[in-house]
Design a protein around this nucleic acid. Sequence first.
DNA 1: TTGCGTGCAAAGGTTTTGCATGGCA
DNA 2: TGCCATGCAAAACCTTTGCACGCAA
Lengths: 127, 127
Amino acid sequence: MIQTNFNQMILDYFKKHQEQSIPSLKVLEEFRGQMNKATIYRKLNALEEQKILRKNYNMEKKCYEYQYCPECKNHLHLICKSCGKILHLNCESAKTFVQHISLEHQFLLDQESTMILGICKECSSHA
Amino acid sequence: MIQTNFNQMILDYFKKHQEQSIPSLKVLEEFRGQMNKATIYRKLNALEEQKILRKNYNMEKKCYEYQYCPECKNHLHLICKSCGKILHLNCESAKTFVQHISLEHQFLLDQESTMILGICKECSSHA
DNA sequence: TTGCGTGCAAAGGTTTTGCATGGCA
DNA sequence: TGCCATGCAAAACCTTTGCACGCAA
């Protein structure tokens, strides 16, 4: 079990931004001067291996991004390509869709790692 | 307009594997001795910019992968995390789902870049 | 002493880029 | 000649790794 302050600091940071998927580069910047780069990467990897953070790749920023979401295994997510915000799909329609994929297409959908990309309401109204 | 043989060779290769998302490393290997690495990357990027190939990141292989799909803007895709096979979701349920996301969640879903991850029938029966 | 988290620097691996060359119009 | 695709090597970039140090049990 990991118990250092650094872990808590990083986790707190992600908890504060639960609705965001945060690029590694931003985490590095956030803790620059407080922790070494290697330490941050090691922490992020550890948290991901423990399934506390979820990791996916941000093609625009060309780096991984991480998200804290305690119950993400059981629902799908929308992620805004513009602002990085995450929406958790807990509705019936999503469940129906996942079930359909499973039953009709014989495809075991991985809700945790699937990221449904698009533009959120706020970002599309800005444009 | 790009008109070299190399372009055609690469495009033919992808057309032969339309149902697959192919990692850059595999493309490099395929054309090793025929084209330079830089040339291949340049071709892949050009084809992606022209929207002829679709690009996404493969976290397991730690490289980009590309797929030829002429009509992928208008439907969702399932991609098998195990074998890389792509399934094109042209069914009504998928359309309904996309519509639901738009209407109820005010989220403009990007069908082209969204990859629904999971395990396909064949791969799950192997396990 | 032992174990482990940490910093630092170097390495790793994919992808990009600078530059020179050669073909073709 | 001029343009552009190409090869080669180096650079760029994020990420990982090796190693040594220092703290705590």
